[in-house]
Structures are given as C-alpha cells and as structure tokens.
Amino acid sequence: MLHIINKSPYCNGSFDMALRFALPGDPVLLIEDGIYAGRAKGCSAEKLANALSQHEFYALIADVEARGVKDLNEAVQVIDYDGFVELVEQHKVNTWL
C-alpha cells in the first residue's frame, strides 16, 4: 500500500501516523508540503533516516522544485506526475489527509 503525505512534519502528525501504520516494505510518497519530510536536515531528518530502512521514499519533483528544497535525503527518489501515476498503478493507496 502506497502512503501519501502532503503535510510538513513540523506542523502536522501525518508523517508519524503514516509510519505508525505502514507495513514494512510499503512505499511512501511525499507531495505538496509533505516534501519537507524528505529533507536531510532538521529535526525530522532522523525519523526519515530510520524509516528509510523499512520503506522506499519518493518525492514529487514539481513540489520539491516549487519550494526550492535542495537538501532532500539522497535515498529519497524524486519522481514526476507520471511516476506518481505509476506508483498508484502498482499499489493501493492510503492518503494521510
């Protein structure tokens, strides 16, 4: 199951909640303000580093570029909308609004 997060880990519990219930091996896609959870810096970075041992992380490039974020953890895979659709083809979806 693909978990989609669209909120910053600094203002909202979506990131923690998604990781609480995601099964090992479930991919996680960061979109909109969710892409801040993909950064290698900041106090959320350690949570991400830990989660990377169990989940593949993806970030939507349009949202990354729009926000000028250049310090994504290098294990986070950057994808476009086409890649977004491809992930949804492969997995059922759990969107954490």
């Binding site: 199951m1 609480r20 219930f21 995601a22 099964l23 479930d26 059922k92 759990n94």
Partner: peptide, 8 residues
C-alpha cells in the same frame, strides 16, 4: 490497524 488498512 496497519494490517486492517492493508486489507482495504
């Protein structure tokens, strides 16, 4: 709960 979600 994670398991329940995965079944949906």
């Amino acid at each position: 709960m994670g398991q329940k979600m995965a079944e949906q």
